[in-house]
């Protein structure tokens, strides 16, 4: 609700833009390398930009390029993208209760633009017990969305001249961003409940490693994250 007091820095659309800034470089690096990879997977500039605009899921878009090159069937590709992006369902379930009082349209718009990174920034804000507005969330989401599309387009423009963005370490932007986002979240959780946070992380690490050898990595991420939640939720408080 608009009437609820929000904390300074989490109120206006501009505040949301500012909260997104630390992740912008990551989006630029990944989006740019996606643009290059897309062009080298025989997609054209229009197709890759459209993909970033309507699919809007980093890892799934790289996977799509690989599958297109391997001549995978349409249903095969769509099914894979579904699994790779299914983790968003859990993130949306976690985030949506915070927007119950907002309109249906606002809810759909927040959900449509939810990414790993915007969810991470949102979650850290929640962990810090900051009160935020819908406008803040929109600023965060829209900045990320526009950055992603622009980065894809720019990568696509140079895609004909560069064949492997990996040489420049650009693909590592994803890992570096996840590392930074995870450590920020971990630090807040540790300060709230040290033992429980460590138990959750250990559960995820062990189960993910085992699951990676049994199921596809996107399914492994979902199951290990759920196991982490299970341990966190079942552990006694204090």
């Amino acid at each position: 609700m608009e009437e609820v007091e929000t904390d300074t820095g989490y109120t206006t659309f501009r505040d949301g833009v500012r909260s997104c800034l630390p992740t912008v470089l990551g989006y630029l690096g990944i989006g740019f390398s996606f643009g290059i990879v897309g062009i080298n997977s025989h997609l054209n500039l229009f197709e890759i930009t459209l993909m970033s605009a309507i699919v809007y899921g980093g890892s799934s878009q790289f996977v799509m390029c690989g599958l297109l090159l391997a001549n995978t069937s349409i249903t095969g590709i769509v099914m894979t993208v579904f699994l790779v992006n299914l983790r968003h369902l859990l993130m949306s379930m976690t985030a949506s209760p915070h927007f119950r009082e907002e309109s249906l349209l606002s809810n759909v718009s927040v959900g449509s633009l939810l990414t790993d990174e915007s969810f991470a920034v949102f979650s850290t804000t929640v962990a810090q017990e900051k009160h935020f507005s819908l406008r803040w969330m929109e600023g965060l989401n829209v900045t990320a969305y526009i950055t992603w599309i622009v980065a894809t387009f720019l990568g696509g423009l140079v895609g004909n001249f560069i064949s492997n963005p990996e040489q420049f370490g650009l693909d590592f932007a994803l890992t570096a961003m996840f590392a930074g986002l995870f450590l920020t979240q971990f630090e807040w959780e540790l300060s709230k409940n040290t033992k429980k946070s460590i138990a959750v992380v250990i559960t995820v690490v062990i189960s993910l490693y085992i699951l990676l050898s049994l199921v596809s990595s996107s399914v492994a991420v979902i199951i290990s994250a759920l196991l982490g939640c299970l341990v966190g939720g079942l552990a006694y408080d204090k």
Partner: peptide, 9 residues
């Protein structure tokens, strides 16, 4: 516990 778990994963 999802944010911590899924970012770790």
């Amino acid at each position: 516990y999802l944010p911590l778990s899924i970012l770790c994963a």
